[in-house]
Amino acid sequence: MASAGRIKRKFRELRARGEAALIPFIVAGDPDMDTTRRLVLELEARGADLIELGVPFSDPMADGPANQRALARGLGAGASLAAILSMVSELRAQTQIPIILFGYFNPIFHYGCERLCADAARAGIDGILTVDLPPEEAGELKRPAHANGLDIIYLLAPTTPIDRSRAIARSASGFLYYVSVTGVTGARAHLDAELGEHMRELRSVTDLPIGVGFGISTPEQAAEVATMADAVVVGSAISLLIEAYAKSGDAAAAVGGLVGAMKDAMNSARRGERPPGLGNSDG
């Protein structure tokens, strides 16, 4: 059985410490399963609070080029759901960091929603985020997920009307994931100027923690978002680093460096400090 509420406990602890959560997204099997295993432990040591494990899919229609290539590498390395669950199960001897499966619905549907939720909970997964499964279609996954103590994480977008956000929030658990750009995943030079306003609006309809992702790639951006949201998700920037370092073999150290710098910047921003060297942000 998964330890029900690992996500909830983590946000409670962070809130008590006045911190925002840093959630790295890494594609399982990018470039191989062993690297993914080492990355999870390394990123936790460098300050990651939750981990989103990308489940490879052949047709990732909401992902930009960096994550498309990462997902293709994961697919090539044989990162099936079964292989991912088995890896997480082994990792649970070493870490209790909350782990969320992040992917598209077809591999899950093909595995079987009931069977997946039971196996995922047993392996130590805490939540599932399925990009192409809006609440309208989520019933067949949600029932077994809740029966097994797994959170279903829903996306909210800049195009989501506030009444719909309220309805989605009511059926959500764990946290809400706000997509910060009207677009696919991938690094952006600038954050949406209206992000703060969207956050204030969302706060008025939910008490759940709100994470922000899509487009955040630098410590400066992470710090800025940390002052507005409960969690910061970074994905494509990590996929690009893994790609760049895959051959030299020290991807874990490089990604660890980025994650460490992001978490430091986020903590400083939350304390109201202006960390040295971050004064030249062009945002």
């Binding site: 229609m61 909401a62 619905f105 990009v131 192409d132 499964l133 809006p134 309208e136 279609e137 829903y154 996306l155 909210l156 977008a157 800049p158 195009t159 989501t160 009307p161 719909r164 989605i168 997509v179 009207t182 677009g183």
Partner: peptide, 12 residues
Amino acid sequence: GGKYVAETLMPS
């Protein structure tokens, strides 16, 4: 059938 898309597209 159904609407299996990213949230960004649902309102559209």
